[in-house]
Amino acid sequence: MIRLDQLKVQAGGFSIDQVDMEIADGKCTALLGKSGSGKTTIMEAICGLRIVVSGSVFIVDRDVTDETPHLRNVGLVPQDNVLFPTMTVREQLGYGPTIKKWDKQAIHERVEEIARALKIDHLLDRKPLGLSGGEAKRVAIGRAMAARPDLLCLDESFTGLDDETRLEVMQVVKAAIQKEGATTLMITHQMSEVELMADVRYQIVDGQVGLLE
């Protein structure tokens, strides 16, 4: 269980206050809201990339509010992927497990497994330059999932793709998430993405986060 308790976060002149959310284990929770409503700010606070003004962030019942990002065991997929340009796809997928000191065989097997699940196993020896939008997206998601994070964070991760590719990528990612039982938070402003992916829905309206029935 991931829990936000009366969270207040500030980003420059913008702030969002009194955020209460619960993200259930193994479920995909969507946070809907217009552009500029503060969705990404909340996600960055969960990942430890924004300083929390007040309130708390709990990841698997552990208060991580003051912990640095590398101790939180989350996997972030930014909107525009931010792949590491000097690493091959294999190295990107193996980066999290390598950092977490998995043994080499386990890393190899995990990379193969996640690459097959996301249908990018034919790209393992390629570098990001030249990958299509859909391929890059799947690599970014695979990189975030590989070390089995307690929370997978998808920050408008399906935008910027044509409709056909977006649907294809979402279906592949949904299947991978379900297979892994990954606890997921996705933020989006597209209801179609929510309908396909999400089990639980929250919405931000006028700075207030509420459960969407």
Binding site: R72, V82, F84, Y95, G96, R143, A147
Partner: peptide
């Protein structure tokens, strides 16, 4: 954001610098 992504994957700021 390269470093930030690396940090969410478990890298310290220093490790993110040298790796990414």
């Amino acid at each position: 954001r390269s470093e930030k992504v690396a940090m969410t994957l478990g890298a310290t700021r220093g490790r993110a610098f040298f790796d990414v």
